[in-house]
Design a protein around this nucleic acid. Structure first.
Length: 339
DNA sequence: CAAAGGGTTATTCTGGTGCA
DNA sequence: TGCACCAGAATAACCCTTTG
């Protein structure tokens, strides 16, 4: 959409709050020898429109619009509303939104809020079935697999419990085995391990090679994605590093190995969340103890795993710290657990 | 209960690099 | 040698959470 509009001579920017996909697109286009400043002006964070005059752009394309912040700046104390400022700055604004992909307490983007600010700005809104993205681009177009995720995480009611999907799902009780099997699918550097943020990011400041963030059974050890790169998703040597929601959302891989931590467990015949198991270094649930909005914490944890489990086009490998959860997934998908 | 700590992000600056 | 361009460092100060 971006290149199409540029080629037609329109002034247009692509906006997404999360820096990881921006950096990846940036690096790829730099490789194609586009000029730095040209690329820099095309991809923007969501807080860059506070002082932009009315209708300055022909079009602004907002990806992951559910992740927009309320206010901008380093301390979220600038501007009034990112949604309002984007609508104000552009003749046409396009919001790609999936409210089931809200993953932090500061994500405020919603269809209702966009409609509210559009009205304030005197803009018409177009929304509804005609504008839905079909799922064929994600997870090999397997609606069955996506329905399984919604059912597992009780995000939506799914009628049919008999999941048929043209998609490779493999379950592992041994994380080392999962990594070795996943490595076989990394020929073109498009396989990655990703995990729920349940492990403190020690290696952020401790570069000792013997220090690991994620230590699991079977002597599994791994580090989070390194601090010194913003493009973990496409770097040549990052298979050994584990990514998280912040480095993976907005991007896609061929195969993923997902480590489900203790914030998602199977208990009393139900899949339940436990926000206290999140790492101290994770800011996704900032403010939850003060507001006591535990329903929001539950939703964020489930959305996070939905996002992680749907990052791969061809196949997803899963390891759970909670054995009961792994058994449950095995049962409802009729997929054997590999050791 | 008060204080310290950690995480946070768009922009500006500067010394360095590569090319004509 | 001069110019254009670039990568990385430095920077602003708020609030929730943890600690003492």
């Amino acid at each position: 959409l971006l290149s199409n509009l540029i080629n037609k001579g329109y002034s247009v920017n692509y906006i997404t709050k999360n820096a990881a996909p921006r950096e990846v697109f940036f690096k790829k286009l730099r490789k194609d020898k586009f000029r730095l400043n040209y690329i820099k002006t095309l991809f923007k964070g969501s807080g860059s429109f506070i002082n932009v005059p009315n209708n300055f752009f022909d079009c602004l394309i907002v990806d992951e619009a559910h992740r927009l912040n309320e206010r901008s700046g380093m301390f979220n104390n600038l501007g009034e509303s990112q949604i309002k400022e984007i609508i104000h700055a552009s003749k046409v604004s396009v919001f790609f939104i999936d409210e089931d992909q809200i993953v932090t307490t500061s994500d405020v983007g919603s269809v209702d809020l966009i409609k509210k600010y559009a009205k304030e700005e005197g803009s018409e809104t177009y929304h509804g079935e005609d504008y839905n993205l079909v799922s064929q681009f994600r997870c090999n177009g397997s609606d069955g697999y996506l329905a399984f995720l919604d059912n597992l995480l009780s995000i939506r009611e799914t009628a049919n419990i008999d999941f048929e999907f043209d998609y490779e799902l493999r379950l592992f009780s041994n994380p080392v085995k999962m990594r070795e099997e996943l490595r076989k699918r990394n020929d073109n550097n498009k396989a990655r391990m990703i995990a729920g943020y349940c492990y403190d990011w020690i290696t952020k400041n401790d570069y000792n090679p013997d220090v690991y963030d994620i230590v699991l059974e079977n002597d599994f050890k791994a580090k989070w994605n390194f601090n010194n790169t913003k493009t973990w998703a496409i770097d040549e040597d990052s298979f050994e590093q584990v990514g998280c929601i912040h480095t993976a959302q907005g991007l896609e891989f061929d195969y993923c190995g997902v480590i489900i931590g203790k914030d998602l467990i199977f208990k009393d015949n139900k899949v339940v969340t436990d926000y206290t198991k999140r790492a101290k270094t994770d800011k996704s649930l900032k403010g939850i103890k003060k507001t006591k909005n535990y329903a929001l914490a539950d939703r964020i944890i489930k959305n996070t795993y939905k996002t992680l489990l749907s990052r791969a086009q061809k196949g997803c490998f899963v390891y759970c710290e909670d054995k009961e959860l792994l058994k449950y997934i095995s049962k409802i998908t009729r997929t054997d657990i590999e050791c």
